[in-house]
Design a binder for these strands. Structure first.
Lengths: 200, 200
DNA sequence: GTCTATACACAGATAGAC
DNA sequence: GTCTATCTGTGTATAGAC
């Protein structure tokens, strides 16, 4: 029961974070969305920041679960595994379920960096993506001249790229078209793949 | 005198927006930074949103001025003009002078979209970049399969890409190295340019 | 654990004297 | 136009009854 209630809270937080962002989301919003009193919320989570942390933890858990399904197919090339992850994050975004946190809110940063469950999952995701990145570099499918770190950060950033929301709201492209175009700009750049010699 | 004072205000707003973002920046912050009373601020600008708009207008003016210097060299290829603009926006970011506005704050959006001087400049910048984008597509230097609109939005988004700040704060790369690496991921993607046949 | 009611802090904006 | 002082709304968090 308690677990189910908290799960409902996290679901509301997740959607509200995706819709309005952390700063614009109020605890009153969450309470109203869940359908309970604000004071009751604080019996489950000690602060607004912890609410956001719980939502991020759940997203990372879903991400790890998705990565696990990919790891079951080791025959797939590393580059394609990475593209599958990118496609998945875009799908989550398009569904309005990707929480967006401000990069600059320091109170939130303090709570998140002190939150071990969150950090643990972040490290796990980074490790798994990092392994694929280095494998893809080794086989020449990702740029060898760039540090893996830079490729990793860029991939993470594309999971909350504002371009996606902009295209969805101002253009007439389908979700699938948007996904494929942004996947292209991410991996092949604005220049596109173009005619290409085979890499070693 | 009045003009100089307002210019000082916009400078403070610009820097504070870059440092803390719109939501975290308070009007008290601005007043303290300028060194005047808050009430005096409101004699110059009617709201916090208008302060942000003024800062954005100035950035767009600087951008248009920079573009004008590039237009003085029509012999330069369109793709290189676009790269020069991207390099310039990254330089502004690295200098801590790129204001960052939340994509989701609706009150701010209302004010900005109703602000003709702002919209005019935005259209001017879009027009000039759009012309280069289509020229670069025509000569095969930018992906012809992607709509110009998508390329334009992606370029705009890179002007406030959080990856830059992340690399600056967690890595040991120089500003020049960071700039070149992100320019590479932007135009050539995570895959890199690689060995490439000449395009028509 | 859920509620109603409220404390507390702070930010945007204004009043009114000079 | 600048100041000090203040209003007003709102958002996080808590008290205390049930």
């Amino acid at each position: 029961m308690l677990k189910a209630r908290e799960d409902a809270i996290v679901s509301s937080v997740n959607r509200l974070l995706a819709e309005k962002g952390f700063d614009a989301m109020t605890v009153d919003d969450v309470a109203a969305d869940v359908g309970i009193a604000k004071a009751s919320l604080y019996k489950h989570f000690v602060s607004k920041e912890e609410l956001a942390a719980a939502a991020m933890i759940r997203v990372l858990d879903y991400t790890l679960a998705f990565i696990a399904t990919l790891e079951a197919k080791p025959e797939v090339a590393a580059i394609d595994q990475l593209k599958a992850v990118a496609r998945w994050t875009m799908k989550v975004q398009l569904a309005g379920e990707m929480p967006s946190l401000p990069a600059q809110n320091s109170a939130l940063r303090v709570v998140l960096t002190a939150n071990k469950p969150y950090i643990d999952r972040l490290i796990q995701v980074s490790g798994k993506l990092g392994a694929w990145i280095m494998a893809a570099q080794a086989s020449g499918q990702l740029d060898r001249k760039l540090p893996p770190e830079v490729l990793l950060y860029t991939l993470f950033a594309r999971a909350c790229d504002p371009v996606l929301g902009l295209l969805k709201s101002t253009s007439t492209y389908s979700d699938e078209q948007i996904t494929e175009m942004l996947l292209s700009t991410c991996f092949d750049g604005l220049a596109g793949a173009g005619p290409r010699l085979e890499s070693v």
